[in-house]
Every structure is written in C-alpha cells, then in structure tokens.
Design a protein around this nucleic acid. Structure first.
Length: 891
RNA sequence: GCCCUGGUGGCGGAAUUGGUAGACGCGCUAGCUUCAGGUGCUAGUUUCUGUAUGGAAGUGGAAGUUCGAGUCUUCUCCAGGGCACCA
C-alpha cells in the first residue's frame, strides 16, 4: 500500500481544476444555486473559523453541482474599515497597500484549501470599481428619498474618533473599541431604514430557512408596538401659571421649534413636540387610562429642557440622571427617581388632575419621550408610585379575583383581565378596552392609534479615511449637491497621513476644496465616508451580476443577471451578524428593488441562512500564568509540557480561538502537516455545524487516519473497479454491501440537505468500514467504492479526485453526478422486531417485513424469553407496530 | 428581570421525529501483526450485579400523559447566547 501524499496530490488537482476553469459559474439554463459564505475582512491571516465557514459552503456548492445545478460560489474581500487605519498609524504603512498585501496573503492559503470558488468574480470593496458603484447607489437612494441629512445627536466613539450606529453601541460602549460612547451633535447622513420597518418585520415570517433565533433577534430589534399617541391637556390653573410665569408662549414655541409635527420614529432625539396645549404621550395600554396617576417626561424632553432653564433644582436633577445613565452597574438596578414640576394635566375622561413629573426611566428615544403612569399595571410605574406616594388604582381585574378586595401589592399586574373602575370601559377585556379607548380619544380629537418602532434610521456618516467617500458637495449658495454621475468615482486620495487624530480627508486640501458642480464657485466636498456595513449590504448582488469591472458604462450589477441568481440560496456565516449585517442587507435589497435596480419582489437577499458555530480550543498557560500556543505544547506521558523548555503546562477552559488567549491553531500549519482535506474533514466531522467544534490534536490525527484508510481501500483495489459501475442482482455478502452503500447514499444526502454534516460523516465512516471488510473484487465492490468516493468529494475533494482517477474515472469527480440510491435496496425482506413486555425489552424476533399482525403476535407469544417474562401473568393486550415493535401488556 | 438554545457514556455526539438509547468518531482495555517515527488488524468498552444464560438502573431533577417517553405536558435546577427601564 502506498501512503497518501496530500502535499503532492492536492496542488496537482488544484492545478487541474484551475486549468480547466471548472468552478466558473455560468447560467446554462439548469436550475441555479447561489451558495455564499460571508466574505472575510482581510486581516492578513486566515483562521480556523474561516476554514470551517468556507468548508461548509464548499460542501453545499459541490453537492449542488453534483446534483446538476448551475452553481455560483464566489469570494471577495470586505476590505474597508478601521484596522487598515490603525495599521497605518502604528506601522506607518498606507491603508491601501496594507489591505491589498493582506488580501494576497490570505488568498494563497484559501486557494490551497481547494474550495470550489469562482475566483473570476473576486473583488475587494475598496476597489475603485466597487465603491464607484456604491456611490452611484447612494445617489440613487438619495433620489428615491431613502437617504437624508440631519443634524443629530449621535453616538461618538472617542477612541476611534467616529460615529456609531445604534446597533454598534453595546452596553454604552463602541462595539469595536469598547470605549464609552459620548453624545455629540453632528451633521449626519442617514439611510431611511425605518421606511421599511413594517416590511422588514413582515418579511421575517417568510424566511423559513432562517434560524428562529436570528428572526427573533431582528424582530426584537425592529421592536414594533401598537398603541395610542395622545395629548394630555393642561389643567386650567396650570396653563395660567405656565404661560404666565414661565418663559413660554405658543408664539415663541412655534417660531423656535418649527414644524410641530411629531416624528417619533426618527433617529432624532430632538423630537419636535408641540407642548403649548398639552403633553403628547405614547402608550400601548390605553385601556388602563382610568388607572393613570401621573405623567412623566424624559429628562431629555424638550419641555424638560425649557423648564430647566428657569429651575436650577431641575437642572441639577437632569445632570443627576445623565450621570446615572452612563455608569453600567447603575443601569442594572437603576432606582427610579423623579422630580415633581408645578405642572398638572387634565385626565381626558374624567374630572381629575394628574401631576407632571420628570422621571429618569422615561426614554427620549422612544415614543414621544413622555408617558402616563398607571402604577397598578406597569412595574416601573408602580415602583415610582410607591416611592412618591402616588395613588395605585387597579383597573384590570385578573380572573378569579374579587373587585372589592383586589390589591396589586408590590407586583404590577400586566396580564389579561376584565376592566373595572373604568367608566365606559367597565366589563371589557384588555384588547377590546384598548380598541374602545383609542376610538374615544380619536373621537375627542386628542390622539390617534399609532404604531411605534424601536428601529431608528441608519446613520452612515463616518469620520474616517478608509471607506467609501460620500459623493456629495456642499456649496454655500446651492446647498448640498450630489456629485454628477460623470464625475464618479470620488476617489480616495492616496497622499494622506495619519500624524494627527481625526479624518485625514478633512484636512486634505485638494480633496476637500472643489468647485460647485452647479455654480462653479468654491465649495466643500463631503469628507465623511460611509459606514462599512454599506459595503457588505450589496456585495452578493455584485458577485452575481457584476460586469464591466470599472470600464465605462459599468453598473453596480446587471439587473437581469443579478435578478436571476438572487436570492442567495444558502448563506453561511456567524451569528454575530444576526442584527447588523443581515438587517442592513435586507434594507439594501429593498432599496435597490424600489429604485428599479433589482428585480427581487420579496426584497429578501438570503433565502436560506445558516449560522455556524465557532472553532474552540483549550487555553494553555504556564506556571506564571502566561498563555502558550498549542503548537508549543506537547504531551509527555499524559502530562502537558512546553515543547522547548519542558516546563509543565496547565490546560484551561475551552473557548473560541483568539489571538489574545493564544489558543489558536494556524490553518497553514495543518495544511502543511496533514493537507487541506484533513483540515476540512476535521472541522466538519464531529460536531453539528451550528455548534462549536473543539479543535484537538487527536481529532486531526483521526481525520488524517481516515483519509489514509480511504486511500488504502482504493489503492489496494483491483484496477477494473470503474467508479460508475452499477452492480445488478447481487446476493449474499455482495447484496449486503450494496444495501449498505445505497442506504448510506440516502443518509449522507439527507445529512447534507438538513445541514447535519456530522451525520453524513458518520455514514461515510460506516460505508468505509463495510468496504474494508469486503474482500471480493466484484461489481458490488466497484459500485460501492464509486459511491463512497463521490460521497466524500464535497468534504475531501482532492482525495476524491485522486481516488476517482485511480479507479479509472473518465471525467473529473467534480463533474460526476451525485449517487442516487436504488429504492429497492433500501428495504429489507426481514426485520428484527424487539419484543417488549410491559414496555421492557425481553427479546427479539426476526420476521418477514410483510408479516401479518396476527402472525407476528403468535411468534412473539411463542418466544421463550417472552414466555418467561409473562409467566404467572395475564396477558391484557398485545400491541403490534408493523416493522417497529411488539409490546405485550400483562398483569 | 424578559426572550431564545441546550443538558444523553471518560469525551465529541447519534437516535428513522412517540417504538431496541448510546450509531459513528475519539479515548481506553486485551490480543495479533514488526510498519519502525501521528501504524494496521481482531475483540471489548453506559453503570451496577451475577461464574453464566441473565437481572436491575439509566438521557440534569420532580411529577404527568401513554401499551410504550431522550422525544409530548407542567414544574424545577444548571450552562450558553440575545435583549435589557421601549411605556
């Protein structure tokens, strides 16, 4: 037997594939299949997570190809972003050079892994040809009212010197830098994602090939709630005080605040609210209006700010709230605190007056920034009411409670029930009560039923160099103008430096200073660049229909071709993108559709989504607690020691591979040592794809052994074992082998179809074992070997080609059709039926599959083990499940 | 606090969706082979009990539905992830 030499075999087949251009995607009229993995950021090194991600996609791509699909499986680079700028600052290299060098460095090992990728479609998002089209899309979105500009309070990351979208702020810190985020007022560009809030939410229901978890996370993020937006009018004495003694009059308000219309769903926190005639609130529980005992405004509410101008104590209170707002532990417990104003409002339905508080738990960013408090049926309101001694009047009576004695105590009741203490709402249930209350308020002209979303518009301005320039010019006379299409792309200048903090574009004279395209006078070019999440929001369409590549007349993508390939049939990537990337991409495809660029009625870019688990590894530390790379650790008689020093090593937790913990295994080392196939096989074999897989040396060796075993099987085999052989009419051991092989086909196929590659792998092992034991050199063996090799091909494609060719396969294994199971070999003539007595297994009998129930029962009763078990008992019942089990009930 | 996921041998994990729990792999044990350098083959490997045919227990825990539960229901514990004052 000759040993399998991956180092020689793998590059050889890679060259054959490349020379024959076999992975190029063409739409030849067969059913199309678009397989895509989230494209990588070119950090310069590939890691095991990449290997696992792309190995999964490759299984799907090769499997679909074998099933006769036209497969599109492209690869490219998500190449804009801050690491390039950080490298520029730290290592004094140019972001562009750094990025393209990294791409080259990553492309080599990726090719060495032998993925069936159509490299002809490769691009990087930092290619001029790509960002030119992104600028064109930006302008198109602008034309179609999907882009707008506003001064807004934004999340400012003081470490990265840039703005962050809401989604990019985690626990009050920047998602990348981890720095505490500050609030800053800036002119910002926004994508109007809220325009599609309802559609994005609705669309989730159609994505039945997405993980439930991701859909839930997006739904939560969009955060739809139905309710009532209404006005509480000032109580008579208040309006006198308010307008008379304090600053405000309706005239000054109107002129300073402009449009009084409420736009609560907008990104802006400076919600413009008309408050001279009352306070606008939003509620999802208008049925509990009769239980209202106060009104609370956000500390950031415009009215609060106005009042604070004349009220030092209130200003102090506001600062107090702001201080608590940023400390993380404080948010955990966040005691509810309030400030009582001298204002009061009129209850809409009855002759009572409610005090107006400023309260720290009311958020300006949601609804109108003001609420009515109903302590009996909202926990926050209850905590607040108990603290400030406000009335707690229950108006929803839970089932089984008595109206006369019911008391909420310290736990607000938020469930269903019957309304009482509520005048015209008495006796209604929750939903009817909500409807009736909304109707009444609408009839009174004090409000309307509305829908609120937590989702806010996507702020995309970034004060960075290494991103797609926003194609806009600011002219003092003509205003904000688009760069004319003929002038695109707005290129990133290359003569920049990072010797000062901030955006180099902002201090680049020839970039920044331009002539107005309208009047020709000196004007200022926009120096902000787009959030890099924009880059990854349409790359899949460019892969599918990109053309011209920077030539004149190039478009973002060919509408017809892109629309044929889209949606992506199977998208694979990490869960960490569940909200950000996947939501933005769904927005983009809707925008592209509505701008007429893409023919995609559903607007959904990804038909199937799979989120794979991480690659983990134990953390190794030495006696001093320093992290040690796994490659430097060896096993010495069951004890882990340092490879060089021999010092003892401690094995710690098994966590995601990360550079900082040094628990990483370099794919390059594995490829060199064992070959690409072994690395691929290992990451797919043991764990289900959606769970984490622990990288172990033993596991790799196991995979390596298996590859050799398959090779041994083939190289020892007779030379006339043509892989496409079909054996007919075998019997005895040959028939058993054929049955095994055909059953394996069915199970392997199913495993791939449902993304349980580990179960496919197990079946491949079984078939290999069966073949290993089968010594005859006949047609049954030839057929089974051919099945085995084709089944292995999506997992270990090089080994498969080598075996296929050794066995005399005429064409490439890559082009060989997926084996089809012969139905007649999947069924057995006889089955083994377990015999149970009172649910306990007592024996088994072998019977023909088509045996009658009576016959089976007779045989079961005659079984000696059954006889022993029912000795002295009376048989009550015999349950015969054909082909499955026989259970005898006796007592 | 709320919402998901999951919990099965020493380990990773199977289980035709209510029908023989532990497939397959790793590890381990015993034997054979001498391939010298991550080797191949054979047998065994849930636990307890018994010389043995066998018996008993067993899928985080408790109860339930059922002829029959890893699978369904309720409660509960633990781990991982997400959201977090969203009115």
């Amino acid at each position: 037997m000759s040993r399998y030499n991956a180092a020689e075999v793998e590059p050889r087949w890679q060259k054959v594939w490349e020379d024959n251009d076999v992975f190029r995607a063409d739409n030849n009229g067969a059913r199309k299949y678009y397989a895509l993995e989230m494209f990588p950021y070119p950090s310069g090194r590939i890691h095991m997570g990449h290997v696992r991600n792309y190995a999964m996609g490759d299984v799907i791509a090769r499997y679909k190809k074998a099933n006769g699909f036209d497969v599109l499986h492209p690869m490219g680079w998500d190449a804009f972003g801050m690491p390039a700028e950080n490298a520029a600052i730290e290592k004094n290299v140019h972001p562009k050079g750094w990025t393209y060098d990294n791409i080259a460095a990553m492309k080599a090992p990726l090719k060495r892994l032998g993925f069936a990728l159509d490299w002809s479609r490769e691009f990087a998002t930092c290619d001029e040809a790509y960002y030119k089209q992104q600028q064109a899309i930006f302008l198109k979105f602008w034309e179609n009212d999907l882009v707008y500009r506003k001064t807004a309070k934004v999340n400012w990351d003081p470490v990265d010197h840039t703005v962050l979208a809401n989604e990019q702020v985690i626990d009050g810190r920047g998602w990348r830098s981890g720095a505490l985020v500050e609030q800053k007022e800036l002119d910002q560009w926004f994508f109007k994602i809220t325009h599609y809030a309802e559609d994005l939410l609705e669309g989730l229901n159609t994505l039945d090939r997405w993980p439930e978890k991701v859909r839930t996370m997006q739904a939560n993020w969009i955060g739809r709630s139905e309710g009532l937006q209404m006005r509480f009018e000032w109580a008579r004495p208040t309006i006198m005080n308010f307008v008379g003694d304090r600053v405000l009059s309706s005239q000054t308000l109107k002129s300073s605040k402009g449009n009084p219309k409420i736009n609560a769903a907008s990104w802006l926190t400076t919600t413009e609210v008309e408050f001279h005639s009352g306070i606008e609130i939003f509620t999802t529980r208008p049925d509990t209006l009769f239980g209202a005992s106060f009104i609370a405004l956000s500390p950031d509410h415009p009215l609060t700010k106005k009042l604070a101008e004349d009220d030092e104590a209130l200003e102090t209170f506001r600062k107090e709230c702001a201080r608590i707002g940023t400390g993380e532990e404080a948010i955990e417990k966040a005691e509810k605190i309030g400030y009582r104003t001298s204002l009061t409002v009129q209850h809409p339905f009855q002759d009572t007056v409610l005090p107006v508080y400023i309260a720290n738990f009311v958020l300006m960013g949601y609804g109108t920034g003001a609420i009515f408090g109903c302590p009996a049926h909202d926990q926050r309101d209850l905590d607040f009411a108990r603290k400030y001694d406000l009335p707690v009047l229950p108006v929803v009576l839970p089932e089984g409670e008595d109206a006369a004695s019911y008391d909420v105590g310290t736990e607000a009741y938020i469930g269903e029930g019957t309304l009482y203490n509520s005048d015209f709402l008495d006796g209604l249930n929750k939903d009817d009560g909500i409807r009736a209350a909304i109707e009444k308020i609408e009839a009174m002209g004090q409000g309307t039923g509305t829908v609120q979303y937590r989702l806010r518009d996507w702020g995309v301005s970034r004060q960075r160099y290494w991103g797609c320039p926003i194609p806009v010019i600011h002219c003092e006379d003509c205003g904000v103008l688009p760069v004319p299409e003929a002038d695109l792309p707005v290129k990133l200048p290359e003569d920049i430096n990072f010797d000062k903090p901030g955006n180099p574009l902002d201090r680049h004279p020839t970039f920044k200073n331009v002539d107005c395209p309208n009047c020709g006078k000196p004007a200022r070019r926009e120096t902000d660049t787009l959030d890099t999440f924009a880059d990854s929001s349409w790359y899949f369409a460019r892969f599918a229909g990109g053309s011209g590549n920077g030539q004149p007349g190039d478009k973002p993508f060919d509408k017809k071709i892109a629309s044929e390939w889209l949606p992506v049939d199977q998208y694979i990537g990490g869960v960490e993108h569940a909200v950000l990337h996947l939501l933005y991409a769904r927005f983009f495809t809707r925008g592209l559709r509505d701008c007429g660029l893409l023919d995609l009625p559903s607007g959904e870019p990804f038909d199937g989504l799979f989120t794979q688990g991480m690659v983990t590894h134990a953390i190794y530390t030495d006696a001093d607690g320093n992290f040690v790379m796994p490659a430097d650790v060896t096993d010495n008689d069951g004890k882990l020691v340092h490879l060089e020093t021999g010092a003892p090593i401690h094995k710690g937790d098994i966590v995601k591979m990360s550079k900082s913990k040094k628990n990483v295994v370099d794919p390059n080392d594995i490829i060199e040592g064992y070959g690409a196939d072994v690395a691929r096989w290992f990451v797919l074999s043991d764990s289900p794809p959606d769970r984490d897989v622990e990288w172990t040396e033993a596991g790799v060796i196991g995979a390596w052994r298996f590859a050799n075993k398959v090779w041994a099987l083939v190289s020892d085999s007779s030379s006339n074992h043509r892989p496409m052989t079909v054996a007919n009419g075998a019997e005895g051991a040959a028939l058993e082998l054929r049955k095994k092989a055909h059953k394996a086909i069915a199970k392997i196929t199913h495993g791939i179809d449902v993304f349980r590659f580990n179960t496919s792998v197990a079946q491949i092992y079984e078939l290999t074992n069966a073949l290993g034991k089968y010594k005859a050199n006949d047609a049954a063996k030839a057929e089974s070997l051919g099945i085995l090799i084709r089944a292995i091909a999506p997992f270990m494609p090089h080994l498969a080609e080598e075996c296929w060719s050794k066995l005399g396969g005429k064409e490439l294994c890559y082009h060989a059709p997926w084996p089809v199971a012969d139905e007649s070999l999947l069924t057995e003539d006889t089955v083994t039926l377990p015999l149970q007595v009172n649910g306990k297994r007592r024996g088994e009998i072998s019977v023909p599959v088509d045996i009658s129930k009576d016959e089976a029962e007779k045989l079961a009763m005659a079984d000696p083990a059954v006889q022993r078990a029912i000795d002295g008992l009376t048989v009550r019942k015999v349950i015969v499940v054909p082909g499955r089990i026989i259970n005898i009930v006796a007592s």
